[in-house]
Simulated scan of single mutants.
Amino acid sequence: MNLLMVNDSTFQGSIRQQGVTMVDFGAPWCPPCKVLKPLLDELGSEYGEKIALLEVNCDESPATASDYGIMSMPTVLVFNNGEPVEKLIGLRPKAVYENLIAKYI
């Protein structure tokens, strides 16, 4: 499962109201974002339908980035049942994301 690209107009409707949604806030020109993307794709493959994975291009969706106080990229927000519950700023090892998912599924 690949990351679903969302924008200012589709973001809210894409967050799962039941279960876990991980949102990657980044930009195509950001080197750590390029490293994170395949890692999140792996998580998507491993967890399948248990989680939703969304991607927000901060350059194209500044309102959404601003709403969630995104100051640096990449930032991963974890939503549980529609509410933001965790925020990871910067690139982290895959195990950190796995542990975060495990907390909520």
Rank of each mutant, 00 (worst) to 15 (best):
F11R: 03
F11M: 07
F11G: 09
Q12R: 14
Q12E: 15
Q12H: 15
G13H: 08
S14E: 13
I15M: 11
I15A: 12
R16D: 09
R16E: 05
Q17Y: 07
Q18S: 12
V20K: 04
V20E: 04
T21M: 02
M22P: 15
M22E: 05
V23C: 13
F25M: 09
F25R: 13
P28Y: 01
P28L: 02
P28C: 02
P31D: 00
P32Y: 07
P32T: 05
P32R: 06
C33A: 01
C33N: 03
C33Y: 05
K34P: 01
K34F: 00
K34R: 15
V35H: 04
V35N: 02
K37C: 00
K37E: 13
K37A: 11
P38I: 03
L40W: 06
L40G: 09
D41L: 02
L43V: 05
G44E: 11
G44W: 06
S45W: 11
S45F: 11
E46L: 14
Y47L: 06
G48T: 08
G48C: 08
G48L: 09
K50L: 12
K50W: 08
I51E: 00
A52V: 05
L53E: 06
L54M: 03
L54W: 09
L54F: 11
E55P: 10
E55H: 14
E55M: 09
V56I: 12
N57A: 05
E60K: 12
P62K: 00
A63V: 14
A63D: 14
A63G: 04
A63F: 14
A65H: 05
A65K: 01
A65W: 09
A65T: 01
A65E: 03
A65D: 04
D67H: 11
D67Y: 06
Y68E: 00
Y68T: 01
Y68C: 04
I70F: 02
M71C: 00
M71Q: 11
S72E: 05
S72H: 01
S72V: 03
S72T: 12
M73R: 01
P74S: 12
P74Y: 07
P74E: 09
T75Q: 01
T75F: 05
V76N: 14
V76E: 06
V76P: 15
V76F: 13
L77F: 13
V78Q: 02
F79G: 14
N80P: 03
N81H: 10
N81M: 01
N81R: 01
G82W: 10
V85C: 13
V85T: 14
E86I: 04
L88M: 15
L88G: 10
L88W: 13
I89F: 00
L91H: 04
L91Q: 02
R92G: 00
R92K: 12
P93V: 07
P93F: 01
P93C: 08
P93S: 06
A95F: 10
V96D: 12
V96Y: 08
Y97K: 05
Y97V: 03
N99P: 12
N99S: 13
L100C: 13
L100D: 04
